[in-house]
Structures are given as structure tokens and as C-alpha cells.
Amino acid sequence: MSNLSTVTNNTSDAGLHKESKAAVLFKKYGMLIILIALIALMTALEPNFINSNNIINIVRQMAVIGIVAIGVTFVIITSGIDLSSGSVIALTSVIVATFAQEGTYPLIVAVLAAVAVGAATGVFNGFLIAKGNIAPFIVTLGMMTAARGLALLFSGGRPIGGLSDSFQFLGQGMILGIPVPIIIFAIIGIVSYVLLNKTKFGKYVYAIGGNEQAAMIAGVNVTKVKILVYSYAGLLSGLAGMILTARIASGQPTAGTMYELDAIAAAVIGGTSLTGGIGTIGGTVIGALIIGVMNNGLDLMNVSSYWQQILKGVIITVAVYIDARKHKKK
């Protein structure tokens, strides 16, 4: 590191870049503005869109992807990637379903099983990435395939039904008129926000993504933080798998297919930068809601699935383009 470039005088001492107020505002709240615009558009096109039932509906539908996306946000901020989330959902789904059979174990056992399975896959990912120095893309790609295989092996390829009512409550129930998945999503959102913004761990996550070398020199235990990050992402995938299982009342080895990509999309739309060091929980939640609002609105209007996919692709590309523009300015 000491024989690298000599002169780095590309920043003049004139001080800060000047930016227009609108640009600053858009940078900060850009995706929120887009979400509101999208909601307004949907309401204009389909009056049924804007009623409290439907809004609750959208948030509940996005809870699973949203929870996964929050975990993925941590990972992407460290400039990593997690492709295994969807398969971890499936693995959790079938294992949890066996612990949630009517008249067997108390509910807490199933919940703990979800947390344990998810976290275990995450620890494994994190260990190989941080200690083994293997690229996150490769490690999680391997986990994506292996976890799906394990789920199929464990379930024999068949769905597992017969889940207890108390377990199903986690996916289908309401507390004070609010669906349980939304409550879990909200708790995870708040906890993750605090973790990322108010704790040492969170600062280290940003530091590693911002400059891993500098973080190491600042005394950050990079290996440990990375393992924790992947473990947390795995744990959240596990919880997401639990909610999905409870919601559809069935442990499914094929559940969660491609969810990892939706989760990454939500994070990226929400402003998380794939180059690391940038991203927020709020942004990711907005990103998930943008996907949810779009899916829901297009369903209401009976727009074909083909168009839905094309639009999602366009939004992701635009989000990444905005991100790239932001970086270019510097």
C-alpha cells in the first residue's frame, strides 16, 4: 500500500461542490418522491387503489421481500452481495413447517428454528467470505444452490402442510387490526435502523463498505463484522421464510424462488450502492414499497404480467443509473 500513486491533488482547495437545492433534495428524498408520484399515478388510473385495505394489503405483501431486503442492505453496504436469500427462505420453510405441526412443539420452538436455520446459513456464508476470502457472489451462489437442494431433500420435494393455528397466526393473524407480518416487518425495520445507525456495529458496516483497508487500519475487526453481517442477513431470510410459511400455511421447498433478486432490487431502488458504503433502511423499505405498489397497481388494472416484468426491469435500471450518476459527480 505504500508504493502507490504519488500526487492526489485533484480536489482544489476552493472548498465544496455547489449543487442546486432541488438536486440536493432529490438526492435525499428522490425515491420517496418517486413512490408518492407512483401512488398518485395509480390512484388516478384506478380509484380503488387508495383505500386503507389496499394499502395494508400492499405492505403485508411486501413484508417478506422487505425483511429479506433489509438484511441484503447490510450486506450490500459492506460491498458484498447475498444471492442465497430465496433458497434460505425455502430451507427455513420446510424445516419450520416440521416444527410447527399441529399438536407438537410450542410456537417458540418453530420461531427459534427459523432464526437458527437462517442464521446458520448466514454464518456459513460469512465465514467463507471473511475468513476464506472467497468472493461473496460465489459463496452465496453456492449457498443458493445448496440450500435449495437441502430443502428439497428434507421435504422430499413435497409441500408440508398441517401447520398449527398459532403458527399460521404469524402469517395470517391481526393484532389491533394490523396484520402480524406488518408488525414483524416494522419491528425488524426499527431494530435494523437502530443497529445500522446507532451502534458501533452499524458504523463499522458503513466503514468496511466505504474503505475496507481504512477500516482495518482504524482498528475494525473486519472479519468479525463481515461474518455478523452475513449472519444477520441469513437470520432475516429465516424470519421471512417463517412468515411466508405461516402465510401460505405450508412448508414449501420451492418457496422464495427469485426473492433474492427482488430483495436486491428493493435495496438498489432504495439507493443502496453496489459499490458499498451507501444505503439506508428507510430507502430499502421505500424500494420494497415501490415494487409492491407497482405490482399491486398493475394487478388492479389487469396489466399483463409481461409488462410488469418489463417495468420492474426499467425501474431497477433507472435506479442504478441514478446511483452511478451520483458517483460520477465526485
Binding site: 458503513y206 466505504g210 474503505n211 450502492s273 458499498g276 458504503g277 465526485k330
Partner: peptide
């Protein structure tokens, strides 16, 4: 390269 956390 080894000092600043540029995005922070």
C-alpha cells in the same frame, strides 16, 4: 486509498 471513508 487507506484513510478516508469516501462515501461517509
Amino acid at each position: 486509498l487507506t484513510g478516508c471513508f469516501l462515501p461517509l
